[in-house]
Simulated assay, not measured.
Amino acid sequence: MDNDDVALKWDHEASRASAGAALAQIAAARPQALDARRTARRSKLPFKATLYSDSLLWRIEELGRSALDAYDRDDHVAGIVLTRATIETVAALNSLHRLVTRYEGGDIETLDATLMSMLMGSRVRDDRPDAINILNAVDRLTKTLPAFRALYDQLSEYAHPNDAGTASSFAVLDIVRLGATFTPRGEQYARRAWLLIECLATSLMLVMPLYAELSTAAPNFARLCDSDVADDDA
C-alpha cells in the first residue's frame, strides 16, 4: 500500500465507521412483521404509512450494506450507484416523515392519494397510481441539507455511462503515446472514494432519527386519521 492509499484509508476511517454503525442500527430496527390492527382503530391510512416506512427501512439497509461492501472492495462505480439509490430512498423516507408529522387532519382524500402514490406507485403499470417524483423528494431534503442535491448530481454522473462512470473510472490515459491502461482504480481514485463514503455515511445517519420521529408521531397520526373516517361516516 503506497502513501496515498494510507492517507486515503486514514481520511475515510471515521466516515467508514459511521456508515457501519448506522447500518447496524438500521438492521436492528427493521421490523419482522406488521399488524394493521395495531396501527389504527378504523382508518387504513396509518397501516399504509407504516408499511411504506418499514419497507423503506429494509431497502435502505440492503442498499447501504451493499454500497459499503462495494466501497471496501474498491468497486467505486457500483458503490456510487448503490449510494445514489440509498439517497433516493432516504429522501422518500423524509417525504413520508413530512407528510405524517405535519398532517393536521381533515384532508383524508389527498392524504390517501399521496400515500398510495408512495406505496403502490408505478411508472410502467396502468393499473397503479403514478409514482412519486423522486427528484422532488431529493430537493425537499435539500432544504434541510443544502448540499444534498449537488452531491446527488455528482453521484448521478457515475450512475450513467458518462465520462465519470466509464473512462475516468476504469482507464488511465497516456497523452504522449495516445493510449490507455485499464485498471479498476482508473483516474481520480481518491475523489471517487471520498464521494462514495461521505455521501453514504451522511445519508445513513439521517435514517434512524427520521424513523424514530415517525414512530413517535404514529399515535397522533392514527387518531387524526380515525377522526377523519368518523367524520366521513357521520
Rank of each mutant, 00 (worst) to 15 (best):
S18M: 06
L8T: 03
R30T: 00
R16M: 09
Q25M: 10
S18N: 14
H12K: 04
G20D: 06
A19R: 04
E13V: 00
L23C: 07
L8Q: 02
A24K: 12
V6F: 13
D4A: 15
N3K: 06
A21Y: 15
A7Q: 12
A22L: 01
A19P: 13
A7W: 06
L23H: 15
R16L: 10
P31F: 02
I26Y: 02
S18D: 14
D4F: 00
A27W: 14
P31K: 00
A29V: 06
A22W: 02
A28P: 09
A27E: 09
H12A: 11
G20L: 09
Q32S: 14
R30H: 00
L8F: 04
L23R: 13
D11N: 05
A29R: 03
D11A: 09
S15K: 03
A17P: 14
P31D: 11
D11E: 12
A14D: 13
A17H: 09
E13R: 05
D5Y: 12
D4N: 14
A7K: 04
K9S: 07
A14I: 09
V6L: 13
V6D: 05
A7H: 06
A28V: 07
I26F: 06
A24I: 06
A33E: 15
A7P: 04
Q25D: 15
A21V: 05
A21K: 15
N3A: 14
D11L: 08
A29N: 02
A7I: 01
A17L: 11
A22I: 03
V6I: 15
D5R: 08
Q32D: 13
L23Q: 08
L23F: 15
A22F: 07
V6G: 05
R30V: 07
D4E: 14
A14F: 03
A24Q: 14
R30N: 01
